[in-house]
Design a protein around this nucleic acid. Structure first.
Lengths: 148, 148
DNA sequence: AGAACTTATGTGTATATACTCATAAGTTCT
DNA sequence: AGAACTTATGAGTATATACACATAAGTTCT
């Protein structure tokens, strides 16, 4: 017997969470990077420096967890920061397997230089996505990130 | 005169749109890819195949625009699909500069195989992010993607 | 028609991302 | 203490991403 041709209704696909979350990330990243360009770091690096500023000294695993990033990805991102003198790392004093990462003076200066540019970008972002809504949304992301 | 140490209030940084949109994209991508793994395509490829199914034959520029993706990124993504026999492309008949991309039979089969898995993932996603809210959100993304 | 301009795409390069596998350090169990 | 297990990290590999630059085809202007 011949199979009936599948006639799938793809109408829902444009709402695909994978597609649209990636699409937003691409758009927002490009927007933020244009805004903070003069600080000579990119959007991801700004996030890393800000997280380091708050958490230092911090291990690869802990920082990756905080950023919802694979630890191998983070590790390589940190290598680039370190290459550029924005952070440094050393083996953990208590647990030698760990890599303890800290901001350098130069890293802190880059963060400070980028901050007002970032702030402007974030304010401008709120002209499109309501601030209250966005913050609720971020909370939801962070509450559920383990679920995924 | 000595400079007073900058004392920037970084409390807003955890709401950074760049950080959080990327964070969500990473989490959701990993979630969807685990779900559709058995279709032997990844989340991005599913989106590309679905878009191709709807728009074929389509040029690099038009497809990239639709997906909010840099055209050079899309071009390389399409190369991989083509390498795997999921789509093919030929020079435009009217405008020879164009690359006209179409799904192959194999590409359509992959899409059909992945679809129910995708659907399940999307339903499960809606258990966390309310469907109505998410769809409003997606509309907002797509309305404003040019702004960024 | 030929020059100047515009447009569609590809290439080089660099970062981001994450999976699998490897290794060394720490912990637990006997 | 030594074996077995666990944990923190790095390396190999592959895809995703996008900027700057290059090129070829199409269009417009004179």
């Amino acid at each position: 017997m011949l199979h009936k041709a599948k006639n799938i209704d793809y109408d829902e696909v444009p709402y695909c969470a994978c597609l649209n979350s990636r699409k937003l990330a691409r758009a927002v990243t490009s927007f933020f990077e244009r805004k903070i360009k003069h600080a000579e770091i990119n959007g991801n690096q700004f996030s890393l420096l800000a997280a380091l500023n708050r958490m230092q000294p911090v291990t690869v695993n802990r920082l990756a967890g905080q950023l919802g990033m694979d630890r191998t990805t983070l590790s390589r991102n940190v290598n680039l920061l370190e290459r550029d003198g924005l952070c440094d790392s050393q083996p953990g004093r208590e647990d030698k397997r760990q890599r303890e990462i800290s901001l350098t003076k130069k890293g802190k200066e880059s963060l400070e230089k980028a901050y007002p540019l970032w702030k402007e970008a974030q304010e401008e972002f709120y002209k499109i996505f309501d601030e209250i809504e966005w913050k609720k949304y971020v909370s939801k992301i962070n509450e559920n990130i383990e679920e995924f």
